[in-house]
């Protein structure tokens, strides 16, 4: 067991090291930030000074060493665009993103869990068919499309909710529904599959024979059995939402990491690109690691295979 944990930790560290290279190269591949940072009146000397100031004139491997050393000290450099520490900018944006991902997850569970359970309880019924249609529709609708439709309906046609912005409770509704709807599709399918399996299990069958009320069986036993894979999946899904919210954040002008990263890439703002990708990736990897370890604890076979 300890060996498994150590191996997984080691693997994660190696992956992180690889990530730094990938991110560093990716950021630099995007092109020269100078014309985006300086006005067209800037002289060649101004441009040269800018490159020198940020060390962009040095050979790429030297730049990487500097980058890595600074990152190990928690320093991601100064944003070209905002002239503030990139890490602070990202920290400012991670809050809104985590909140949105959390609330969306909640929406996804509130929609997906009951639907999945209902479909599992009545296989072959019209309800199951409707749930299947719902899930396959949810997975197929691009979030920018559903987001726009929601704005069109609930912010413009019926002015009930704010169309964009951040800070108030109302601001959460449309983006969280957009993202939650998308995530609910897979939560539904997963709940459905696991509930079906749990209901078929000998244990539940026996309880049924013993005449325990159906509602109690479903809620207490079947759901409990089905919940482990669902919870695991939610953990992974949460990681996906962190990065997958880019488009939703754009549509709703949500000041999160996704939108910051899109802007940073388009602005060739290397330090922000590096800090934002790194932080997101570390979050995702931490969640994955936690899920793996949790699984290993709960199911010892995993660590042995």
């Amino acid at each position: 067991m300890a060996r498994f944990i150590l191996t997984r930790l080691g693997q994660t560290l190696v992956t992180l090291a690889l990530l730094t290279i990938l991110i560093f190269v990716l950021a630099r591949l995007t092109g020269d930030p100078t014309p985006l940072v300086l006005p067209s009146e800037a002289t060649e000397a101004d441009r040269a000074f800018f490159r020198e100031q940020y060390g962009l004139d040095r050979p790429i491997h030297e730049q990487y060493v500097v980058f890595l050393r600074n990152v190990l000290h928690g320093d991601f450099g100064i944003s070209f665009r905002y002239r503030e520490p990139a890490f602070n900018l990202v920290l400012m944006a991670i809050g809104p993103t985590l909140q949105l991902a959390g609330v969306s997850m909640l929406v996804a569970v509130m929609l997906g869990l009951p639907l999945g359970i209902a479909a599992a309880l009545r296989p072959g019924s019209w309800l199951a068919a409707a749930v299947r249609a719902y899930a396959s529709f949810g997975q197929a609708v691009p979030t920018f499309w559903s987001g726009l439709m929601l704005i069109f309906l609930f912010a413009i046609t019926l002015p009930l909710l704010p169309s964009s912005g951040y800070g108030e409770v109302e601001n959460f509704v449309l983006p969280a529904v957009t993202l939650g709807f998308y995530a609910s599709a897979s939560v539904t399918m997963l709940t459905w599959a696991n509930m079906t399996e749990a209901l078929r299990s000998d244990f539940v069958q026996m309880e049924r024979v013993l005449g325990i009320p159906r509602r109690l069986i479903v809620l207490k036993h079947a759901l409990r059995n089905a919940s482990l894979p669902i919870v695991t999946y939610l953990g992974l899904q949460f990681g996906l939402l962190l990065g997958g919210a880019v488009v939703t954040e754009r549509v709703f002008a949500w000041p999160g990491v996704g939108q910051m990263l899109v802007d940073a890439i388009l602005n060739r703002d290397y330090p922000v690109v590096q800090a934002a990708v790194m932080l997101t990736a570390v979050l995702v990897m931490t969640i994955n690691l936690a899920v793996d370890l949790l699984y290993a604890v709960l199911d010892p076979r995993v660590s042995r295979s």
Binding site: I156, P159, S164, G165, F252, A253
Partner: peptide
Amino acid sequence: LKIVPDDQSRVAQVQTGE
């Protein structure tokens, strides 16, 4: 000065009175 990069979302701002 509220920063709303997306055209459609920005225009919606005045439609909704935000």
